[in-house]
Write a protein that binds this DNA or RNA. Structure first.
Length: 359
DNA sequence: AACGCGGGGTA
DNA sequence: TACCCAGCGTT
């Protein structure tokens, strides 16, 4: 595209955005801290899922200082169900860095932004363009999908190198007058019209420029390689109650999958294949025996990269055996005080529906 | 450069 | 069912 075509492209794109673009809570503010929160929540997460979390989060932590001073568990509680929990931890770390190193204000240059925990190339560019009107293209899945179609770019978007190519292209393209609107317009286009599996090209403000539309190959783009076969893991979930009917729960390790969240004890059935090994394991750790619940209950929980197949077992523990750190006895009506992954929220539901007899 | 990291929406 | 989503940190 020459300079004149770029200008026209921007005009058509921005004109559409100003009339048809989405109205979203984080577009109502200029507060870089709020915009930052929204950007972190929106990483790999769809807009409609984020909206209620965003509203609750900024009302619970209205200032950087409020978030910086909050206990991590409370931050995780506000993130419960949103997934990718390290985002919450990194966001709080990053906000603490901002409070300590930048006088509580978000820096307005790329280098400093990238040095903050949880801010990568995309989020830095988003903040610079949305909060500070800098012409930085925010390279995300939407932008790559839209531009790969418009310009018929067949590089593999799962490769790091390809990101650089889109960055160069978008840098030439981005509207100097309204860089933030340019980025948001491509996001809205990607979400509303130029979708992955179903396009709506006749509604698209730039279909006249689109090489893929011209050739009728929109759905062939973007090119993306590498699918992974997901592993399946079998676990027993142990419902261990003390003399008062309280349940034993444990906090997961600080690193790794679902870090810092709480769960009912789990025993790998792949690791301990024999019945006697399993009995020894439970006896050693929890001082009791377990058996399948009266009406057997198993279900699968699917993550993006693995599958848990969970089976409920129950047993009677005792408060006489001292608890280890990161364990506690919890009454049925106190589960809500702890962040649980969705896979274990299902178990809480099961308990509430199937065990109204004890507490 | 490759991998780990959640949960929900969509076709 | 099989992707896909306003990515980032670690290795």
């Amino acid at each position: 595209m020459d300079a004149q075509q770029i200008k026209q492209f921007n005009h058509d794109l921005l004109d559409w955005f100003h009339t048809k673009g989405r109205q979203l809570p984080w577009r109502e503010t200029n507060n870089p801290y709020y915009i930052w929160i929204s950007e972190v929540m929106l990483q790999q997460t769809q807009v409609n899922t984020v909206i209620p979390y965003y509203n609750h989060f900024i009302s619970r932590f209205p200032t950087p200082e409020a978030l910086a001073n909050a206990p991590e568990q409370e931050v995780l509680k506000c993130w419960e169900g949103l997934g990718y929990y390290s985002r919450a931890r990194n966001l709080q770390h990053g906000v603490r860095e901002m409070v300590e190193n930048y006088d509580g204000r978000l820096p307005d240059n790329k280098g400093d932004l990238l040095s903050i925990t949880g801010i990568g190339p995309y989020t830095a560019a988003a903040l610079l363009s949305f909060a500070y009107d800098e012409p930085e293209p925010a390279i995300d899945g939407n932008l790559m999908r839209v531009l790969s179609r418009v310009f018929l770019i067949d590089d593999d978007i799962s490769k790091q190198k390809t990101r650089k190519k889109f960055e160069n292209l978008a840098s030439d393209l981005i509207a100097r007058t309204e860089p933030g609107a340019f980025n948001q317009a491509l996001m809205d286009l990607g979400a509303m019209t130029c979708r992955p599996k179903k396009t709506d090209c006749l509604q698209c403000p730039v279909h006249a420029y689109c090489l893929a539309y011209d050739e009728g190959v929109q759905l062939e783009y973007p090119v993306k390689s590498g699918k992974v076969k997901l592993r399946s893991l079998n676990y027993a979930v142990l419902l261990i109650q003390d003399e008062q009917g309280r349940y034993l729960i444990e906090q997961r390790p600080e690193k790794g999958l679902l870090a810092g969240l709480w769960q009912f004890p789990m025993m790998s059935l792949d690791e301990y294949e024999e019945q006697s090994q399993r009995a020894d394991y439970v006896r050693d750790r929890y001082g009791c025996a377990v058996a399948p619940v009266r009406k057997p209950f198993s279900y699968t929980h699917r993550f993006s990269h693995l599958i848990w197949r969970l089976t409920l077992l129950e047993g009677r523990g005792t408060t006489k055996k001292p608890l280890k750190t990161r364990q506690c006895w919890t009454a049925k009506d106190e589960f809500e005080r702890y962040p649980f992954p969705v896979s274990h929220q299902k178990i809480i539901e099961w308990i509430k529906n199937n065990r109204q007899d004890h507490t």
